[in-house]
Design a binder for these strands. Sequence first.
RNA 1: CGGGGUGUGGCGCAGUCUGGCAGCGCGCUUGCUUUGGGAGCAAGAUGUCGGAGGUUCAAAUCCUCUCACCCCGACCA
Length: 573
Amino acid sequence: MMRWTQTYIPTLRQKQTEAELISHQLLLRGGYIRKLASGIYLYLPLMQRVIEKFANIVREEMNRAGALEIHMSVLCPAEIWQATGRYQSVGKEQMRMKDRHEHEFVMCGTHEETVTTLIKGEVKSYRQLPMNLYQIQVKFRDEIRPRFGLMRGREFIMKDAYTFDATQESFDRSYQKMVDAYYTIFKRAGLDTVKVESDTGAMGGKAAHEFMLLVDTNGGEETILICDKCGYAANAEKAAFRDTVKIGKPEKPKPLETVDTPGAATIEEVTAFLKVKPHELVKTLIYMADDKPVATLVRGDRDVNEIKLKNAVGAIQLELATPGQIEEYTGAPVGFAGPVGLKDVPLYVDPLVTKLSNFIVGANADQKHIVNVNLDRDFKATKVIDLSMARGGDGCPMCNANLDSKSGIEVGNTFQLGTKYSLSLGAKFLDAEGKEHPIIMGSYGIGITRTPQAALEKYYDDKGIIWPRSIAPYLVELIPLSMENEGQVAAAEKIYTALTEAGIDVLMDDRAERPGVKFNDADLIGMPIRITIGDKSLAKGKVEIKARAEDKVELVAVDSVVGAVEEVAQRLN
RNA sequence: CGGGGUGUGGCGCAGUCUGGCAGCGCGCUUGCUUUGGGAGCAAGAUGUCGGAGGUUCAAAUCCUCUCACCCCGACCA
């Protein structure tokens, strides 16, 4: 199928300093990828095969689910993105350029605008629905900070599918079909995934899910919260929770008192100084939401969930205020902000704060806090809304068990878009009564280049990669130990031909290298099955077969290698 | 964008503080030996020291500007 000397597998012996993640390191060292620029990678022959294998699994399952493969341009006229408002909301992640006629285009990071434009005006009747269109294509997002190799590149390949339905019931079926297909796809790729609830982000729409690969390495880019008992699972940024912290019974409001807290700005310092628990304090953080200040109040032991806040204030850009801005709005340095007497800044209050009485806040004055503060008496909330980040150990919102915190990599997502795009771009259909409605849409992504790398965060050892067999570049690596030994070469050629004729992907290491080099490279690049041809066993008419994931070496007759490979493959992931 | 760091042969690095022949390991080429877990010996090739400007008899080294890349944060459809 392929000989090492005829292909290009530039393995590296030394660790590459640019790679932090084990998976990224392995792809570089194994000769799978090379970097062209920050966040832009070139796929070498082995990577190209991995991508093809995974893409084909995706393609087969999408087709099986009734989706139709199409291909859309990477470019899109800017005015279409202006029509949906995302030209504004997506911001700098979007690469923009002008053609020679000064007509502005965007480089698509996703294709809702394009696909909706495609079907609008052409899909006019409920009889043409439902429909599901997908493509496997390059995307470009000018990430603020590309990192982790293919995991957060600027250019990447994605499978994106879009569903179009006439009714909510029909949409629910279409959505479920995609969810089912996703489980099948990842399972076929050897990956166990968990479906979690997620925020819809700049996609907009009603609800969204992410498919996460759970990992133990530092490659986990997302924190997810899972309830073992009822199965509730959500991205931390989305997760609801039941607060289980014991707080005191409501007390009668006591008189306000300003106290000196020299040198105590952080929650830790203030609690130590005043000898109180973090949950008796209220933390006031000032954010800038599209250049306007907002104050958030959460209980001292909780962190602000910025996604929830962003959604609550409806901001496009949200960031913590700078020390200078904090001083401008509160009159005090960082660490002493509080709601009492804070002027011209809206106060977003977490519901957990409303259960507290006689709590402690910053005094908007240097080195001072106020005690015995009470909501409504001492300040009014602009809005009471959940702003707390859920964390491991919190109560499950659906049952009486507790949530577990895990680290995961997002490999797929599904969005219930509703009519956001069909309304703004005018994609409508006529129902049986001749009435006009906007099409109900969904959008579904799978990271084609990211998923294989994510898999490597799980499938490796100290020697290198251990591919799941369905996405390995080759199933078998065939190693004649010496290319100068005629017997070995003849046996290798015979086996090579037999495997190829049996339709098994095989890579033969025909380099004039020493055995140690071949073994080490084989372990590094990670083909699931290794066949070694050496004098010791060949004298008995046998060769060695070994799974990359196992230690055990079996001897098989040269003539029965095909059967043996199939047998070993059966039991591999 | 803010903070930190790195740019020296294909890869990994030393040299920079204190200016004075541009080095080491791996890889590469050739030859001989070796051949079941990254071989040995010998001979070789490979550098605008990221770029521009400046100081100096002399700059990888000092100064100014600039570019790229990496890490932390913001971001992540």
